[in-house]
């Protein structure tokens, strides 16, 4: 009779250990991948340079906004929180390009521009719930980049023009 008791106890721990080993294997894999990602800053800085040159060329293009979004996100992952810190990070790492463009001013200006556009939004545009909920501030996630691109496209589709300097829809 006791064999049933031990079988039940053993089965309990087999189930738990099987699950835990699954979780720990996943953890080990993720750990390796994340270390690989963290060892990429050189590549990243080259990309920053390339982006800043691109920025010079297409000042008003949508791609600029996407790229800036990427930069924010990337910097956030390395522990930078606000705009100021990001600018310091960029200045520290890519000083020439940044000072050439006066990025400190530009970056912070464009962050507020995003917010402005969303707050003074055209009521006909359907906004995503995330944006509505956060009261107009956009997090630079993968999603909001697409969203912004869509927004710009929608504005242009309606025969309107979005002035990136004033942030208004003309």
């Amino acid at each position: 009779m006791n064999s049933y008791l031990y079988a039940a106890y053993a089965a309990t721990w087999i189930v738990h250990i099987a699950y835990l080993s699954m979780v720990s294997r996943r953890y080990a894999r993720l750990r390796r991948e994340s270390e690989l990602q963290m060892s990429l800053p050189d590549e990243f800085l080259k990309l920053v340079d390339a982006l800043l040159h691109q920025y010079e060329a297409n000042y008003k293009s949508q791609e600029f906004f996407q790229s800036i979004g990427c930069l924010f996100e990337f910097a956030r992952k390395r522990g930078f929180s606000g705009t100021g810190e990001l600018v310091q990070f960029l200045q520290g790492n890519s000083a020439g390009a940044v000072s050439r463009l006066g990025l400190r001013y530009e970056v912070s200006q464009h962050v507020t521009l995003f917010e402005k556009v969303i707050l003074e939004r055209n009521p006909a545009l359907r906004l995503h719930d995330d944006v509505r909920r956060s009261g107009g501030t956009v997090a630079f996630t993968d999603y909001s980049r697409d969203w912004l691109q869509d927004l710009v496209r929608t504005i242009e589709y309606h025969g309107l023009h979005w002035d990136p300097v004033s942030g208004r829809i003309l």
């Binding site: 990429l40 390339a50 791609e63 996407q66 790229s67 990427c70 990337f74 993968d142 980049r145």
Partner: peptide
């Protein structure tokens, strides 16, 4: 997220 981002940065 970082992977998606790197993909995007590289393509740009």
């Amino acid at each position: 997220e970082t992977q998606a981002l790197e993909g995007l940065l590289e393509s740009r």
